[in-house]
Design a protein around this nucleic acid. Structure first.
Lengths: 154, 154
DNA sequence: CGGAAATACTCAGTGCCCTGACTAAACGGG
DNA sequence: CCCGTTTAGTCAGGGCACTGAGTATTTCCG
């Protein structure tokens, strides 16, 4: 007995929120380029020539996932991937003209989508919304490496 | 030029929030049973004998995804799946003793994890947090079928 | 200088998540 | 009663996300 009320479970809400966003992105922004892919393009507009790992860090993706995303973008010719001559382990990433064009196009569509997505909230509520989510996510992320603050000593 | 600030993009925040939760779940709740799997167990505790589609509806998963999740739970012997004698299309789902036990065990761990996850927020902030996310997610979900409120006529 | 440790990336494996196309069962009106 | 429509579930295919193991390169230290 005693089933839990999932509407008070942040994990469940986070999943539902992301699904809702995924859906809206698909219909209002792009069917080819996903939201994580856009985040990568965006990071490279801000800082061209980043290596794979750092891009992953910027957008919040682990080494495996970022490798897949980049391989797809590269396959579609949206970015170039070249060995760093100074450090043979790294790949340096840079948008192609086509990649930059895609980023520009999606930027305006994304802004439109965000308006629709956030329509149920007032301006003040949006600020609070961002702040609360950011605080929870940041805190949980900080709970990672540093000496394993949780019971299990690994 | 003009890279966007992703910290004001709800989709990006939602993804980061979910990742943070995934991580915490893994370390504090279970490595075998995932959060969506727990949601399914929970739905069946509340309403035993539901069919697959309805469970999916309750926890917010489409028919394909719910089929995979259920197949995994069934493989591990946490639930039984039998043809509805009254309607040969449906499968009726019911937790096994082991499934019910798993649900009980995870329920207490989940509560502990939620405390940690929400620790950065005060009690009032948590209420707001739930409310805002729910409103955004519900609104976006409502934006689905009904006559396609968006440009594209399908 | 040479070997151990750290670092960037790859690869295999698992699970979630969606769409679109398909099969089988049930339903409903002529 | 039969045929068309709806409905439950399956299957193939693409993408995101993580872990753990493995490779190559660089770095650091004795």
């Amino acid at each position: 007995m005693a089933a839990a009320d999932l509407t008070t479970h942040p994990g469940h809400l986070a999943r539902r929120l992301q699904q809702a966003h995924y859906l809206l992105w698909n219909t209002m922004v792009s069917e080819e380029t996903t939201s994580p892919q856009f985040a990568v393009l965006n990071a490279l507009v801000a800082e061209p020539g980043l290596d794979q790992r750092t891009v992953g860090e910027r957008v919040g993706l682990d080494r495996s996932t970022i490798a897949e995303v980049i391989s797809r973008l590269s396959r579609r010719g949206l970015l170039d991937k070249v060995r760093d001559p100074e450090d043979g382990r790294r790949f340096l990433l840079r948008l192609t003209e086509e990649g930059a064009r895609t980023h520009r196009r999606l930027t305006v569509r994304t802004a439109r989508m965000n308006q629709v997505f956030l329509a149920p909230l007032t301006a003040e509520e949006r600020t609070v919304f961002f702040d609360l989510i950011r605080r929870v996510a940041d805190a949980a992320e900080g709970l990672r490496d540093p000496g394993d603050p949780l019971p299990a000593p690994r």
